[in-house]
C-alpha cells in the first residue's frame, strides 16, 4: 500500500469511531429532548450543524430513530386516563408464530406497547383508555376472543413515578450558592 492510500485507510477508521461516538451522544440527547436544536447539538458535540442533520436523517432512514415523542405526565392534567398492563399467554399455531399474533394485537390503536417476554407468560401489552370500564371492554371484547390467546391477566397502573428514565417530580438544586 502506498502512503496516501494508507492515510486514507486510517482516516476512515478514525472517521468511523467519530461517527459511532456522535451517534451515541446524539441519541442520548434525543432520547430526553425531542426538540433538540441542531445548531445547539452541534456546539455541544463539537461538530457542524450539517453533520448533525445528516446523521439524524440517516438514523431516521435506518429506523434507529423511530419517532419524536413527548413524555407527558397525564396525572397533572384534567384528562382522565388509565394505563393497564396485560400479561397475555398464547398458543402459537402452525404457520402463525409469535410475530403474527403480536401483529394482530398491535394493530389495535389502543395498544401502546407490546413486548414478547421470557418466563411465565408470552406478551406484555400496555394499553391506555379513559376509564377502567373501557379497558375491561377492550380485554373482553377484543383481546381475549382472539383465537390464539389462552389467558390474560390485567394490572392497572396506580401511579407513575418514573417513565422513560425521567422522574416525574421536580428535582431541586440543594447546593449552597457559592462554594470554593
Amino acid at each position: 500500500m502506498t502512503f496516501p492510500e494508507w492515510m486514507r485507510f486510517i482516516n476512515r477508521e478514525i472517521r468511523k469511531d467519530l461517527d459511532i461516538y456522535m451517534r451515541k451522544q446524539l441519541l442520548s440527547m434525543l432520547e430526553t429532548n425531542r426538540r433538540l436544536d441542531k445548531e445547539e447539538a452541534a456546539i455541544l458535540l463539537g461538530v457542524t450543524a450539517e453533520e448533525i442533520a445528516n446523521e439524524m436523517a440517516a438514523m431516521e432512514k435506518e429506523k434507529i430513530i423511530c419517532g419524536y415523542h413527548t413524555l407527558i405526565d397525564w396525572d397533572k392534567t384534567k384528562e382522565e386516563k388509565v394505563t393497564a398492563l396485560i400479561e397475555v399467554k398464547v398458543t402459537p399455531q402452525r404457520g402463525l408464530g409469535f410475530d403474527k399474533i403480536a401483529e394482530r394485537i398491535y394493530n389495535f390503536p389502543e395498544v401502546n406497547a407490546i413486548y414478547l417476554m421470557s418466563g411465565g407468560f408470552d406478551f406484555t401489552v400496555i394499553i391506555e383508555k379513559k376509564t377502567m370500564r373501557e379497558v375491561a371492554a377492550f380485554v373482553s371484547d377484543k383481546l381475549a376472543p382472539l383465537e390464539a390467546i389462552q389467558s390474560t391477566a390485567t394490572h392497572f397502573v396506580l401511579k407513575k413515578y418514573k417513565d422513560h428514565g425521567t422522574i416525574m417530580d421536580d428535582v431541586r438544586d440543594e447546593r449552597i450558592l457559592v462554594t470554593p
Binding site: 438544586d173 447546593r175 449552597i176 450558592l177 457559592v178 462554594t179 470554593p180
Partner: peptide, 20 residues
C-alpha cells in the same frame, strides 16, 4: 461573596465548586 448572595432571594448562581 457568599454572605452577599445568601441575602438575595432570587439570585441564581454560577458560583459552586461541586458537581450538579
Amino acid at each position: 461573596f457568599f454572605d452577599i448572595v445568601s441575602e438575595m432571594k432570587d439570585a441564581i448562581s454560577l458560583g459552586v465548586g461541586e458537581p450538579d
